[in-house]
Amino acid sequence: MTFRDIVPIIVLITLLAFVPVFITANTVLNFLVFTLIIALAAQGWNILGGFGGQFSFGHAAFFGTGAYAAALLQVRLGINPWIAFAIGAVAGAAVGWAIGYLSFRSGLRGSYFALVTLAFAEVLRILANAAAFTGGAAGVLIKLDVRPENFQFESRGAFFWIALALVGAVLVLTRWIERSRFGAQLVAVRENEAAAKALGVDTLRVKLGAITLSGAVTAAAGCLYAQYFLYVDASIAYGTWISVEAILAPIVGGLGTVFGPLVGAVALHGLSEITKLAAGSVPGIDLMVFGGLLVAAVAFAPEGILGLLRRSAQAKGAARHA
């Protein structure tokens, strides 16, 4: 990876960093932070699903682990939230490795892998809902104590910047994957596992690496969620909603691309907010838009919004040459 590879990322993140300077409305910032958290979770999914072709339906397992780790470590054990955040991401990596080891070692792939990840997430949700340590169905409340060293901020802008920095860091990570041997082998596994093996790719190790990274990134999104909303319960942390969000954003934005998850998350949530504003009195209208957009993406833009843009750019280029 060279510096030139990350120039577009630096430009984009720098531009976005100015948003809180111009927009100070809390509702808008709320929306933006939430969208960035979703984008981060989706970036995690994209490493495993987009690049590695291993479609997980249970990324809630990682998101929830991150959220609960961040919350419980500070509430129950009094650990500093910043450190709890880091441990949360590591815990997500560990859960990723464990789920990967169990399912990839037994050769699960395709829909079987998807179902097993779904099952793991559900098991964790039920456990978290039942155990006393996690606060059971009542969930965990993080005490309001607004100090920067406490990972709590007066302004939502600060939170926006932290979320943005994390998204930027993962953009760089994803670009590195795209340009590295690990990435080439991961994509080879996605395209044809037998051929990859014949070319000396240790497919188990590559898939484990991917699910571990993926788990860490999505768990970081979970930590951020807990820290922002200061509350988690089982149906938020381990709920299927986040598994679905993490899949939809990359599919709509562009599977296996660096910017796909971010573009998808912004497009999906931007549109659903707009429809909510436009048709405020109709409950669930935003979900219908969600579904419609997914159908449209799968039917007309299988390479996502980014693929669509690239194709239209190519068509324009061709027209100019003609």
Binding site: R181, Q185, A188, R190, A195, A198
Partner: peptide, 29 residues
């Protein structure tokens, strides 16, 4: 080995296909 029923990485370019093999002995892209 080669495969009797060809197994290309269909989504990749020809060069990228070959590069996966080359990566076995060359870590740098």
């Amino acid at each position: 080995r080669t495969f009797q029923i060809v197994q290309p990485f269909a989504g990749l370019s020809v060069l990228e296909n070959i590069a996966v093999g080359a990566h076995l002995r060359h870590a740098k892209r």
